[in-house]
C-alpha cells in the first residue's frame, strides 16, 4: 500500500500551477516572474510523473518530464541573458518601468 493516489497529486500540481501564474501576473521584478514560470514548469512535471506512475509501460511521463526540464533550463538561460541585456540597456528589470521607458 505504498501507492500514492492520483487525485491529490494532481491537485497539488494545480495549486502550484496557480501559484506560478499568480507570481507571473503580480510580480514586477522580471526575475521573480521567471521564478513563477519555473514553478509552472514544475507543476506540469509533477502531473507527468504522476501519470507515469499509473502507466509506466514506455516511461513516457518520465521521459517527457526530462525533456521539459531540458527546455526549462534552456529557457531560463536565454531568459536570464535577455534580462541581463535589458538591465544593461534600461538600468532596471522592473517590468512597468521598462514599459514606460519604451513609451517614447
Amino acid at each position: 500500500m505504498n501507492n500514492i493516489p492520483l487525485i491529490p497529486v494532481l491537485l497539488l500540481g494545480a495549486v502550484l500551477f496557480c501559484l506560478g501564474i499568480l507570481a507571473v501576473i503580480t510580480k514586477r521584478h522580471a526575475i521573480v516572474v521567471l521564478m513563477g514560470i519555473e514553478l509552472i514548469f514544475n507543476a506540469a512535471n509533477l502531473n507527468l510523473v504522476a501519470f507515469n506512475r499509473h502507466q509506466p509501460d514506455l516511461m513516457q511521463g518520465q521521459v517527457f518530464s526530462v525533456f521539459v526540464m531540458v527546455i526549462a533550463a534552456a529557457e531560463s538561460a536565454v531568459a536570464l541573458a535577455i534580462i541581463l541585456k535589458v538591465y544593461s540597456y534600461f538600468k532596471t528589470v522592473n517590468l512597468d518601468q521598462i514599459r514606460h521607458e519604451t513609451d517614447v
Binding site: 500514492i4 497529486v9 510523473v49 506512475r53 511521463g61 518520465q62 518530464s65
Partner: peptide, 8 residues
C-alpha cells in the same frame, strides 16, 4: 522519489 521517479 515517492512517485518512483528517481531519475527525474
Amino acid at each position: 522519489i515517492l512517485l518512483f521517479a528517481d531519475f527525474v
